[in-house]
Amino acid sequence: MLLAPIGSWLVRPAVLVLSVAGLLAAGWAASPRFWAALSALAALRVALDWPMSDNHGYLLAIWCAALAVAFADPRPRARLAQHARLLIGLAFALATLQKVWAPDYLDGTFFRWAFAVDPRFEDLGALLGRGEEALERTRLWLTAPPHEPLPPDAAFVETPALRAAAHGFGWATVLLEGVVALAFLAPSALGPGRLRDAALLVFCAATYAIAPVAGFGWLLLAMGVAQCESARRRLLYLAVFALVVIYREVPWLALLGGRWP
């Protein structure tokens, strides 16, 4: 909450002050009231932004509430791990189902559109052969207002590599998200349950390299580490947390494609 502050001027100062206090004041970070207050602020942010808040805005509010409930429990660590598993599992199950149900996801349409329109995929598009002029023409095609004639330059231009990548990314994402959902919702003793940390770490290390939504990545990693039982794997969570910082700060895809920002 300090690295990716949330909310407008109304909510943000209170969240920042509370977050700093949680780090500095002894005992605050284990206080149910502290987390209940942060949960209320995160929920207020979602309500004030309605309906524009990102999904991790909702997840953050629920996660803070889960922390409050866990710290009020006689066995906070076990309760927190249980909450984290359930929340990660449900969030990924919903994400997987939404992609399977959507009319334009599994056929590659979504990523063919996103590679052109979403600036976060610009470097990847360049790396896969779509130049600036072709990107401009494609954006004109995809985003022209529905009531106006299309500009003469507008055309959907893509390379075979981009088209293949759109299909590959779509299927890889839905499969990976499905595996994370299954691993976190399955009982610990069963096979998929043993894959939890590996699945979530691979998801975060791979997804946020391409789509650097750092705030969501850090939240998932914080929830992941809360349910992790191995000290060695907790270090891996820390490493991937740092990796997401690097993804956010270093345009590595642009550098890979020889485009110096």
Partner: peptide, 9 residues
């Protein structure tokens, strides 16, 4: 809050 981001155009 339905986690449908990046699922459709």
């Amino acid at each position: 809050g339905g986690f449908g981001m990046f699922s459709t155009v």
